[in-house]
């Protein structure tokens, strides 16, 4: 494709309609979208707070059985991935395409590492017969059941976001490769970065709430 049409990938629909490029509008749109994500998780955090106040001791008991070292390792991994993401944006805005792509590959690898550790953790729980409606689960105290309910829901939803964020990074890499994202048209990559930082930020709250209250 010619670089002419390529330039308009992110925000140029039909030739006649809204064919202009407005990075500020893209940024506003992304921030508004992030607000919705914050509220999505916010509702879950409210549920967590309510149940924590009802089932304080059950939550502590259940939390003590989560794998804290894995959780801590995942925290470090995600924080580092946010750093590489930010560096990638900085590199591309200085027109260093190769370095930016390398940093994004590192970000993707870190995301994959996060998911692998997460799946070990879930697998470990499942192998101990701890999953929704399992025989062991139904014998647990009510508060512990709710704790695991929230644990599977919130970390699961977060993992889904890691997956979607990874897909967005991959897509952005393709666009950088084809020079559709360039130093002068970087808003798409910046938005992917914002999304990635949100994924990171949510985890920073999930980690202490689930792993450190035991």
């Amino acid at each position: 494709m010619s670089s002419n049409t390529a330039a308009s990938v992110v925000d140029a629909p039909e030739a006649s309609h809204g064919g202009h490029h407005d990075p500020v509008a893209n940024k506003i749109g992304m921030w508004l979208f992030l607000f919705t994500e914050v509220l999505l998780f916010g509702a879950l955090f409210i549920a967590f707070a309510v149940y924590l106040s009802i089932y304080r001791w059950d939550f502590q008991e259940a939390s003590a059985h989560l794998d804290m070292p894995i959780g801590a390792a995942n925290t470090a991994i995600l924080l580092t991935s946010s750093l590489t993401m930010a560096l990638a944006i900085a590199a591309l805005s200085r027109a260093n395409k190769k370095l930016a792509l390398h940093l994004l590959v590192v970000t993707l690898l870190l995301a994959a590492a996060f998911l692998v550790l997460k799946s070990f953790e879930w697998g470990h729980k499942f192998s101990h017969d701890l999953y929704p409606r399992s025989a062991t689960m139904e014998l647990k105290a009510e508060g512990e059941q709710v704790f695991y309910g929230l644990y599977f829901t919130m970390t699961g939803l977060h993992a889904l976001h890691v997956l979607l964020g990874g897909a967005a990074i991959l897509f952005a890499m393709g666009l950088i490769w084809k020079d559709r994202i360039r130093p002068d048209r970087i808003s798409f990559l910046e938005n992917v970065g914002l999304y990635w930082h949100l994924v990171d930020l949510v985890w920073i709250f999930l980690f202490p709430l689930f792993y450190l209250i035991g």
């Binding site: 916010g42 509702a43 549920a47 409606r133 139904e138 508060g143 059941q145 709710v146 309910g149």
Partner: peptide, 26 residues
């Protein structure tokens, strides 16, 4: 987004058995 996630929670609770709203599991 709040109602969106709330509906998802009900579905998870009803069809997967994740304990969130069902009084039978706390």
């Amino acid at each position: 987004p709040v109602v969106g996630i709330t509906l998802v929670l009900v579905l998870l609770d009803k069809y997967v058995g994740v304990a969130i709203f069902n009084p039978a599991s706390g």
